[in-house]
Design a protein around this nucleic acid. Structure first.
Length: 711
DNA sequence: GGGGAATGTTTGG
DNA sequence: TTCCACCAAACATTCCCC
């Protein structure tokens, strides 16, 4: 089945569709033409020395909804002209060169495959096809809903004067989304604002307001729940619903339910959305894009229809296949459509890892997720900020301190403790570096984070960076996933154990020196002062989404409350694991483990002399654990203070420097990075050792894999 | 050789 | 004037330790 076949088929479905879409048939035909061009490899990637912008696909990659009719060449030329020569541009060129190398390498490997190899791999493919076919489930009806230009649409609702004018949500550095009027100029999400303004001088910029988007997202989700109480929220503006049951109960088709749902979303919010209906989530998502905006597309649940649909589908339409994978598949293996993934399956299994090849093959067969997946808990939490590139160490340390505080705040808010810290740096030349260290204790304290982050950063100096990020991963699962309503004794043991471990290894005092020396050398007081933390919109978005997922999955538990309870319990339990009485100890004022979310409004006031070296926020709240004790509770406060002091002394005694120093191996690794970076120069790089393609990496250990498969 | 840690890449919203 | 974000996940590879 060729591409034209699918499009004729799709068009028939569209024309049969009753009252289905506000999008004009012309736009669908344009999309068809776009896809056909992609199908034939007529993308603008053809290198033409007189038109260098044609190979610069950084911003304008593939056609997004609403981009039909845009003068692509003009847009690409402007983007190219504005980017040319910049550090960003140079980095893009570097990445492009690397990608070409990978493609070349893969071509070489491809050429070296003997017919016997290919025949053996074909056997593997045939077997896998049978296995995958056995998993095909056409009994479910999945609906993917995607709000149209969500943020922009919400802003237009708030300010109707914007209606009909080109508008983008975001700022001059980056825009989050653009309305359809702006898209006509080539303006799109993830485009720098200054380029967008060049493309569309009258573009109106509206700052992001995630509170507002969350509100509207909640409204849409109320509607979604009526159709599938267990729907999967992909993000604020999209969701997957299993509508099998509701279709059966009401005797309606998937298309009819989709119509009703979209109509309901509109009446509840005043916003339009698009929908795709198919047998699995992967296909439903592809379908929801076909008649965007304010339209829908239904793919019938039968195998031949699915196979026909998939046959001409460009691989880039599949979620998980991005720019790099698309290029590698096309330029190295000549694969442009999903159908070709099955046809050239033997090549995929010869050149890619098992999991990658399996994924490609299942896509080629039109398979995707059909069951409602298990709860996916968060695996990491991070904060990062971009600023004007600087090599000023003092400034970098102060940025680091702010980030540590922000991250700690976010972790406490979610009741998370973790033990792997990763420092991310984006150098002035846009090179990304990451350096990680696993601690011997779980923590969420800003002091701990800063202490270790400082060491990681120190090892990289001197360096000029434009972004610093901190990420914590490897959470305490027992705490995160526990049900607060039960099992308190078990958790007591687990948590007490972990807090004891923490105490055993705590060496916070060593931080004081580091912090003062490295971070705040100009701060004579020696106190750490953090800037105010303004939660970024992106972050808020993620938190909101995460919380939403948690809420859905845990069945009406309000995550924030749950987190607070966990946090409180943890603190109480830590307090319970009393350590022995070391009375004389030096005051430590650097530990501002401020638990209060209104950190900006709290003043840390030291109300005690040497004998009680604690800070009580607003005079009554312990800065270390948040426990509240009014000044009149003199004895209790003294006792509480003693506990913290004892804890600190115990830490001093037992704390091993190895817990805070990157491991020996890490140091060796570091030396290697400095003297001979792991990342080899392009001309030296052996791409067989590291050819990442999204998660679909090529095999490096050919022999072992091949041997296995040939068995 | 297995497993964990560290590093890097790709993708998507 | 402004000159390419932020967050999270998945996965491959290498290295080191046991």
């Amino acid at each position: 089945m060729n591409g034209a076949g699918f499009f004729r088929y799709a068009l028939q479905i569209k024309l049969r569709r009753p009252n289905c879409s506000s999008s004009s048939p012309a736009s669908f035909e344009e999309k068809e033409e776009d896809w056909r061009r992609m199908d034939n490899g007529e993308s603008s990637s053809t290198n033409n020395s007189s038109r260098p912008w044609e190979s610069y696909n950084t911003v304008f990659t593939n056609a997004k909804a609403g981009m039909e009719g845009v003068d692509k060449e003009k847009v690409q030329r402007i983007v190219y002209e504005m980017s040319k020569g910049s550090k960003y541009f140079q980095n893009e060129e570097r990445k492009e060169a690397l990608m070409k190398q990978k493609i070349e390498h893969m071509r070489d490997r491809c050429a070296k495959l003997s017919s016997l190899d290919l025949s053996n791999y074909q056997k593997v493919v045939d077997k896998r096809i049978l296995e995958l076919e056995a998993t095909r489930d056409l009994s479910r009806i999945w609906l993917h809903v995607d709000m149209d230009a969500f943020y922009a649409a919400v802003e237009t609702l708030s300010d109707p004067s914007i209606k009909g004018k080109p508008m983008a949500v975001g700022g001059l550095s980056m825009i989050s989304t653009a309305n359809y009027e702006a898209r006509k100029f080539g303006v799109r999400a993830a485009m720098p604002g200054f380029i967008a303004r060049k493309l569309c001088p009258d573009l109106i910029f509206v700052p992001v307001d995630f509170i507002k988007y969350t509100h509207y997202s909640d409204l849409t989700r109320k509607v979604f729940r009526n159709y599938d109480p267990h729907f999967i929220a992909g993000s604020l503006d999209e969701a997957y619903l299993d509508i099998t049951e509701v279709c059966r109960e009401r005797g309606l088709s998937g298309g009819e339910i989709a119509e009703e749902l979209r109509s309901s979303v509109y009446s509840e919010t005043g916003l339009t959305c698009s929908a795709g209906v198919a047998a699995n989530r992967l296909l439903a998502k592809v379908c929801s894009d076909i008649n965007k905006p304010n339209g829908q597309f239904v793919l019938q649940n039968d195998r031949s229809t699915v196979m026909t649909f998939v046959s001409s589908l460009p691989v880039r339409k599949i979620g998980g296949i991005g720019k790099v994978t698309e290029h590698i598949l096309k330029d190295a293996l000549g694969i442009k459509t999903c159908e070709e993934m099955v046809q050239k399956g033997s090549l995929l299994y010869a050149l890619f890892s098992q999991s990658s090849a399996d994924f490609f093959l299942s896509v080629g067969l039109g398979l995707g997720g059909t069951n409602t997946p298990q709860v996916r808990s968060r695996k990491s939490i991070s904060s990062e900020r971009t600023f004007a590139a600087t090599g000023d160490e003092r400034l970098l340390y102060s940025k680091l301190a702010e980030l540590a505080e922000m991250l700690s705040h976010d972790m406490k808010k979610e009741g998370l403790t973790a033990r792997t810290l990763t420092l991310k740096l984006k150098t002035a030349s846009f090179e990304i570096r990451s350096r990680a260290v696993s601690l011997q204790r779980y923590t969420c304290s800003s002091d701990d984070i800063l202490k270790h982050a400082t060491k990681l950063l120190k090892a990289e100096l001197p360096v000029s960076v434009r972004l610093i990020g901190l990420r914590m991963s490897q959470f305490v699962e027992e705490i995160r996933n526990s049900d607060p309503s039960q099992g308190t004794i078990t958790k007591f043991i687990v948590q007490k154990d972990s807090s004891r471990q923490a105490q055993d290894l705590d060496d916070n005092d060593s931080f004081d020196l580091d912090a003062n020396k490295n971070c705040l050398s100009n701060d004579e007081s020696g106190n750490v002062s953090f800037g105010s933390h303004e939660t970024s919109s992106a972050h808020l978005k993620n938190v909101v989404e995460y919380e939403e997922r948690s809420q859905i999955d845990s069945g009406k538990v309000i995550p924030n409350q749950e987190c607070m309870k966990k946090e409180e319990r943890l603190q109480i339990l830590e307090g319970d694991s009393l350590l022995k009485k070391h009375k004389e100890c030096k005051p430590d004022t650097s530990h501002l483990m401020n638990d209060n979310s209104n950190a900006q409004n709290t003043e840390a006031v030291s109300v005690f002399p040497q004998t009680e070296p604690l800070y009580w926020i607003d005079g009554y709240k312990c800065v270390l654990c948040g426990i509240e004790l009014p000044p009149s509770f003199v004895e209790e406060r003294q006792e509480h203070s003693d506990f913290h002091l004892a804890q600190r002394l115990q830490n001093e005694e037992t704390g091993s420097s190895s817990s805070t120093t990157p491991s020996k191996r890490r140091i060796l690794g570091k030396e290697k990075v400095n003297s001979k970076p792991k990342k080899q120069k392009p001309d030296q790089k052996d791409s067989s050792k590291h050819i990442p393609i999204h998660a679909f990496f090529t095999k490096s250990n050919q022999n072992s894999n091949e041997t296995q498969r040939r068995k």
